[in-house]
Design a protein around this nucleic acid. Sequence first.
DNA 1: ATGTCCGAATAGAACGTTTTACGTCAGGCG
DNA 2: CGCCTGACGTAAAACGTTCTATTCGGACAT
Lengths: 333, 333
Amino acid sequence: MAMVSIKDVAAHAGVSPGTVSNVLNRPGKVAPSTRERVEAAINELGFVRHGSASTLRAGYSRTIGLSVIDIGNPFFTEVAAGVEDVASELGYAVILGNSAGSQDKEDRNLRVLAEHRVRGVLITPSGEDPARLDRLREHGISVVLVDHPAHRPDQCAVAVDDVAGGRAAVAHLLAGGARSVAYVTGPLTIRQCVERREGAKAAMRGAGLDPEDLRVAEAATMTARAGEKAAADLIAGGLPEAVFCANDLLALGVLRALLRSGVRVPEEVALMGYDDIDFAAASTVSLSSMRQPTYQLGRIATELLLDECDNPDTHAHQHIMFQPELVARESTQ
Amino acid sequence: MAMVSIKDVAAHAGVSPGTVSNVLNRPGKVAPSTRERVEAAINELGFVRHGSASTLRAGYSRTIGLSVIDIGNPFFTEVAAGVEDVASELGYAVILGNSAGSQDKEDRNLRVLAEHRVRGVLITPSGEDPARLDRLREHGISVVLVDHPAHRPDQCAVAVDDVAGGRAAVAHLLAGGARSVAYVTGPLTIRQCVERREGAKAAMRGAGLDPEDLRVAEAATMTARAGEKAAADLIAGGLPEAVFCANDLLALGVLRALLRSGVRVPEEVALMGYDDIDFAAASTVSLSSMRQPTYQLGRIATELLLDECDNPDTHAHQHIMFQPELVARESTQ
DNA sequence: ATGTCCGAATAGAACGTTTTACGTCAGGCG
DNA sequence: CGCCTGACGTAAAACGTTCTATTCGGACAT
């Protein structure tokens, strides 16, 4: 409870507070003998630097924010693991915000991050309103978009080509012989969902089908439970020959519901997910999916962000676009 | 970039900085007319409070730390979701730390949390060294243990009875007719792994078997990949009639490896996991598991922590112990 | 000896809040 | 009419760092 400050350390080591600060921040600037004395005092007293005071005076913190759409989704979990690894390597702390798909919650989280004067923010925006992010930039907070293309040129972004992914997925289903395809998607306010749909339509067009024939079922959230519900609707409305889901969680839900209703996968309905989370390979009928370099997404985004923060002058903004990779498994034969 | 401070707001509204602070923190203390004026100024200037300055002067922050063992494990993800929900409801930010099973990394994370002067810490400790946590307490940081029994009486803890869980799991396997049981576990430095093993032994004893006959295979991490490797060893050494895994990730890995080797589950080998993550029900052979109130664990732990922080005098420390629940599925017939 | 330069350490102001102690002004009461 | 009280505001001192002068000794050249 008895907070020991830099002053106490200074007194104990017989130096001035400024010297202690130097030992902490540029140990090269202080003579070895005094440095040792100060370090001894630090250990002896159990001093731990007051980050807020430091942030206040120095004008910046060693903290970044991470705002994701759904922390329950293994996709984001793996992104977070990449972020956390890099951040912790470089001595940064990560403040986590889960928007749970709600713009309101995202706004609240961003506000908290702004109050904390985080150095930068990694965000997978849940809507399409660049203005809210620009406001952060006005406060001197760098922003890197994760799994989202850049809003503007003077900004870093790391994304995966969702149109290509949607196209590849549906092309694969069509190549398997399906003629009618349903697209089970999350909220169409989410960019990924829209772009994967566009890709799906492109694939149909490419196969000489009418893209308008793509049957779209929109689920309220991108969870397995929502997938089950969507599948029930699908069954009620007459089954298509193939189903493409906007992510694996939805697909696993659809799969569960289909099997429970006695529908055979892939014999009666072929099924594709997206993200290739670990569990896709382990499911009842192993799930075909589109693999994304998830962990890398987190790592690279964080490296870009911290480079932008630590080397603002030499930093070159980058827009990185990965290509997803099709992984065929039992659910598409 | 032009930081607007409380002073600017004060000037703009024609009041003193103290009054602005009052509007922010105890709006009741200020006359409605001036309050409106100040609020208008705040919006007009786009003022956002400097959290570090606030923390520095007030002596406490609205931030808590969450340190987990493996953010990639859906168990912890769900805990984190519970934590995040409560924290964000009460206006607290959450700093995430992933110890990845390493004491070193956990130490680093705790240090970062201490520097940030977080109000409290939620932690699933990865080892058994209470001293490191006591050091936090000395700095006035409350600690609540998550998925771990209390180290000491004057401390909150939320746990699940792992011995009972291990016993129930193995009892279920034995009831299914198995006579030889293997236990696939994570590092035995992890308490949960040890206690589930003790429960498993107790179940064998209860069935008139020698607990020493429990075959223990220790994996380096608690992931599906490690489970696959452990299963390979198991196959090489001669298969038991039943396998109990310390968590579902390991079990999914074991399942994958067994099926790939042509071993039928549950006919040749019965299999139990632990945690009942969402994906357990969706796997190739749906996985029997021990369900824990995961999301609740996170919620309740956070509520206890914030109560301890916000009402230190009326707060009563609690040791909550949930009972896990057996969920039988195909993998045990 | 004197001046110069350099490394090493220091004093003290600043950072943006919160808080304490203190004014000020009305209104109510004897 | 004087005094007390309460409601509102304010001024100014903190909080623990970092940073910008500035000082202080020596070593060295002249």
